[in-house]
Structures are given as C-alpha cells and as structure tokens.
C-alpha cells in the first residue's frame, strides 16, 4: 500500500501536484502495474473551476500530462477541485462524492470500475 507521496513542486497547482503524486503511487504498486498492463487510456480530470488535467495509462504505468497531446480522452472525471484533490490524495473515498452526484464520470462502465479499483488499491480501505 502506497504511503509516500512525491512532494509537489511550488510552480504547479495543488491539483496537479496531487495527480502527479497519485501517478507515482500507482507506479510504485507492482500489483497495479501488472493489472493495468493492457489498459491503455487517457483520462481527463476536469473541474468547474476550470482545471484541465490528463492522466495517461500506458504499459501499466500512469503519468500526469499537462495537455491531451491531440488525443481524445477515453474517460472524463469531473468534480469541484476540492473533491478531486481529496479523492486523488486518498483523503476521501470516490464512492462518497459519486453517490452524492458531486463527482461525475463519463466513459465506459468497465473503465469506471477500473478507476475505482485503482484508487482502492492505492489507498486501501
């Protein structure tokens, strides 16, 4: 279970730092890397405050990206910035804001489940 997060750099937003740390946590988890070996996806992380971030999964490894690189995303995750930060930092289970309607996801159902499992495996119960 991952507990060490990369310290955020001062030049980037809190959400970007949280997402980078989240990717690092995933990449340190060998089970997750193995599980996502064949799962190649581009996930857009959006907030009503105007945040736009992308996480790319390739060959089992996740990476934060400042732009979509000309690709259409496979999944969109949208929530207020505070919720996104809490979820990706492991302070909040995604199920809670999801069931309140505060966190919306758009994409294939199987991908949605995979994303939930990833957060579960990184942060535990």
């Amino acid at each position: 279970m991952m507990r060490e997060m990369e310290p955020p750099s001062n030049s980037e937003s809190d959400l970007a730092a949280v997402l980078r740390a989240f990717c690092a946590a995933c990449n340190q988890n060998p089970k997750l890397v193995a599980m996502n070996r064949d799962w190649e996806r581009l996930v857009a992380i959006l907030s009503p405050e105007g945040d736009r971030h992308w996480i790319r999964c390739q060959a089992g490894r996740l990476s934060w990206q400042p732009d979509e690189g000309g690709r259409e995303p496979d999944l969109e995750v949208e929530a207020p910035r505070a919720i996104l930060e809490a979820v990706f930092a492991g302070r909040m289970a995604p199920t809670d804001p999801y069931n309140r309607g505060d966190l919306l996801v758009r994409g294939q159902a199987d991908d949605l489940l995979r994303l939930d499992i990833i957060t579960l495996m990184v942060w535990g119960e």
Binding site: L46, E68, E76, E78, L104, R106
Partner: peptide, 8 residues
C-alpha cells in the same frame, strides 16, 4: 456539468 469540453 461533466463532459463540456472535447470528445470521448
């Protein structure tokens, strides 16, 4: 709310 920009 979700899905305003871009495509999927």
């Amino acid at each position: 709310m979700a899905g305003a920009p871009g495509g999927l």
